[in-house]
């Protein structure tokens, strides 16, 4: 589709931004778990807020709120589709 949209890791997205997941660079059990929780390619994710200590970050996905640490969220890529600008 558009070549201009460059996927960014979820960990880099600002609070309030919405992204469409374009790739998950994790393998094994964690990948499985993330898929179960709704982190599926094509699905929309909203970055809700960071923990008071900066990490983890809460994401809104499939009408649920899931917190991920930077270690995980930096491996999930998405294209910005709305909300705060990076």
């Amino acid at each position: 589709m558009t070549a201009t949209v460059i996927p960014i890791p979820l960990s880099e997205a600002l609070n309030g931004s919405r992204l469409r997941i374009s790739g998950i660079e994790v393998q094994g059990v964690l990948r499985r778990r993330l898929l179960d929780l709704g982190f599926v390619v094509g699905n929309a994710v909203e970055v809700l807020r960071r923990s008071p200590l900066g990490d983890p970050t809460a994401f809104r996905v499939s009408n649920t709120t899931i917190a991920l640490r930077r270690e995980e969220s930096s491996l999930i890529y998405g294209e910005l589709i709305g909300g705060a600008e990076t």
Binding site: D36, L37, G38, S62, N63, T64
Partner: peptide, 9 residues
């Protein structure tokens, strides 16, 4: 009922 999308899986 409030998060059926994931629950349906």
């Amino acid at each position: 009922a409030t998060s059926l999308e994931r629950n349906l899986n």
